[in-house]
Nucleic acid binder design. Structure first.
Length: 135
DNA sequence: GCCAACGTTGGC
DNA sequence: GCCAACGTTGGC
């Protein structure tokens, strides 16, 4: 099983909204690197849900409910979506500042490629972040 | 609101 | 195919 991280601005689509919706279509990705990560996701893969701009922290864990298919909002086959559903909220949200401050996490895509909206997380990074969340 | 980082576009 | 200009993202 692989691990991922997806970003969203809470004003656009928040973790709370995802919990309320039970499941959502992760649409609107218009970046090739991010799209390739969407395509690599397998059903059941887990991902961190990160709030950008407001909060600037990892707030919860979601998982892939349906593997990729063409983005209905795109109108062609270039862009894809996955369906995502919430697993659980982290005991403590993990702020970006804490991740940046941890020597073990300097290679995380979140630190190195700040603007990438869908990114892979290694199992090691996943465990460290969980630990920081008090899990 | 500013600005750095980075991706995309388009002229040549 | 290079690279400058431009637009967007996102942290601060």
């Amino acid at each position: 099983m692989a691990y991922w991280l997806i970003k969203s601005e809470p004003s656009t689509y928040s973790w709370e909204q995802l919990v309320k919706d039970k499941q959502t279509v992760w649409d609107g990705v218009r970046n090739y690197a991010a799209r390739n990560h969407l395509k690599a996701m397998k059903k059941g893969d887990e991902m961190f849900f990160y709030h950008s701009n407001e909060g600037v922290e990892i707030v919860g864990i979601a998982k892939v409910a349906r593997e990729y298919y063409p983005d209905p909002t795109a109108g062609d086959d270039t862009w894809v979506v996955v369906d995502v559903k919430p697993v659980r909220k982290l005991k403590k949200a993990v702020p970006l500042a804490a991740i940046k401050a941890d020597k073990r996490l300097q290679d995380m895509a979140l630190v190195r490629l700040g603007r990438l909206s869908v990114q892979p997380v290694t199992e090691k990074e996943w465990q460290i972040v969980l630990e920081m969340a008090g899990e």
